[in-house]
């Protein structure tokens, strides 16, 4: 690892997934892209130091999660409410039913707290529970309890708006 080719492969493989996770977290396309890029800049900078103690994907998700949480904790980077609506600002008439539902889902995810948002985004990305637990540095048992609660919470929030 550590060469340009490896990075290109990692980028091709994980960028769409990381982008969706960041999108679930921010509900703002531009900010999600920024977070994704920042994640991969960090990956590029630290790729040579990656020892393989954990899976590459776990290491990458952890960077992505930390990037999102770090930005959330900076007051200037808190996403204003108006930005959460950025997809609605686009021409609604052109939105298909599917797109409307997706926006509704993003809105429902936004109502969760920041850690829950990242957890559910990773669950929806079908990342394995042990990997999510390792990424977030919590026990798998604890994670399963959290996921059960988040799923119920999200389902309720999503369908209450329909």
């Amino acid at each position: 690892m550590g060469n340009k080719e490896s990075f290109a492969e990692i980028y091709q493989q994980y960028a769409p997934q990381v982008l969706r996770i960041c999108m679930g977290y921010t509900n703002n396309a531009e900010q999600a892209k920024d977070f994704m890029q920042e994640t991969f800049i960090k990956v590029w900078q630290h790729l040579e130091n990656f020892r393989g103690a954990s899976k590459m994907s776990t290491w990458l998700y952890r960077i992505a999660v930390n990037t999102c949480l770090h930005h959330w904790r900076l007051p200037k980077n808190k996403i204003p409410e108006t930005l959460h609506e950025n997809f609605d600002a686009a021409d609604n008439s052109e939105h298909s039913e599917k797109e409307k539902n997706i926006q509704q889902l993003y809105k429902a995810i936004q109502q969760l707290n920041e850690t829950d948002r990242l957890i559910i985004s990773m669950v929806l990305e079908e990342i394995s529970y042990p990997e999510i637990a390792e990424t977030l540095n919590i026990s798998e048992g604890n994670l399963r309890v959290k996921i059960h609660r988040i799923k119920q919470d999200l389902t309720k929030k999503f369908f209450s708006h329909e």
Binding site: K98, L105, K151, F159
Partner: peptide, 20 residues
């Protein structure tokens, strides 16, 4: 029936925007 499976199915329909 409203379930989390529907949310999962919806999430799978999300296309990550083409990355340059």
């Amino acid at each position: 029936m409203n379930s989390f499976n529907e949310i999962e199915a919806l999430w799978k329909k999300i296309e990550a925007r083409p990355l340059p």
